Amino acid sequence: MSRDAEHRFGKRPATEIRLVAGVGVEGDAHAGKTVQHRSRVAADPTRPNLRQVHLIAAELLTELAAVGFDVEPGQLGENVTTHGLDLLALPRATRLRLGAHAVVEVTGLRNPCRQIDAFRPGLLSDLVGRAPDGSVVRRAGVMAVVLAGGTVRPADPIAVRLPTGPHQALAPV
């Protein structure tokens, strides 16, 4: 669990975070009903915030360590680090129950930016690549909005509810 009231690249570890419906992580700079990411605010501050919560798989951090990048939970700006869940394979509108009460809905992929290389030179190329068909592959986690609030702690279970109907692949938000 991580949050930070300031707009910095990484977030500070926390023993728990409180999710607020329609807003995001209480006390986090990216919480809000409308966009909070600086570049998005500059473009149109009235757009809805589809990036209220950032989730990354712990397995990604392990993969990065294996190729020489020491990255701790929260350092890539994520609020929630998951275990045993293939976040990138989830369809849009998947609902995740975090702990007893909180529910988030996956809105899309995080689009990694050049700040990642300022944090760890060369890391961006391990988070963004190309599939054999030439399409861009983004591995920096997923973004979600909060549907139901609640307190979330590191060992809390995560339950997955896939959307009904045709599944839509995740795209950057």
Rank of each mutant, 00 (worst) to 15 (best):
P45T: 03
R38E: 15
H30M: 14
R12K: 10
E16T: 09
S39N: 12
Q36F: 12
R51I: 06
T15Y: 05
P13W: 07
G22E: 07
P45F: 04
I56R: 04
S39E: 13
V41T: 04
K11G: 03
A14P: 03
G22F: 08
G10Q: 09
R51C: 06
A42S: 08
Q36I: 02
K11P: 03
H37E: 15
R40A: 12
Q52A: 10
I56N: 07
E26K: 14
A42H: 01
L19E: 05
E26V: 04
L55G: 07
T46W: 00
L50E: 10
A21E: 05
T34H: 15
H37G: 08
R40P: 00
A29N: 13
I17D: 02
S39K: 13
G27Q: 07
V41K: 07
H30R: 14
V53T: 09
T46N: 01
F9P: 03
G22S: 07
T46I: 00
H54M: 13
P48I: 01
D28H: 10
R38W: 13
S39W: 14
G22W: 11
R18Q: 13
T15D: 11
K11F: 02
K33G: 15
G24L: 00
Q36S: 12
I56L: 15
R47K: 13
R40T: 01
L55P: 08
G22R: 05
A14R: 09
R47S: 04
R40G: 00
L19F: 08
P45R: 12
N49C: 04
A29T: 08
D44P: 02
V20C: 05
Q36C: 14
N49E: 05
E26F: 02
L19W: 05
T46P: 00
R47N: 02
G10M: 10
V25R: 09
I56Y: 10
F9W: 07
K11L: 04
T46M: 00
R51H: 11
E26N: 08
G24C: 03
Q36N: 09
F9V: 04
V53I: 06
R12H: 10
A14K: 04
R47C: 01
H54G: 02
P48S: 02
D44M: 01
E16F: 15
Q52W: 02
D28W: 08
L50M: 07
P13F: 09
I56A: 08
V41R: 13
R18N: 14
L50Y: 07
V20R: 14
V23P: 00
A14I: 07
V23H: 11
P48H: 02
T15G: 13
G24D: 03
H37Y: 14
A14S: 12
V35N: 11
I17N: 04
V20P: 05
K11V: 03
G10S: 13
K33Q: 15
Q52C: 10
A43Y: 00
L55F: 12
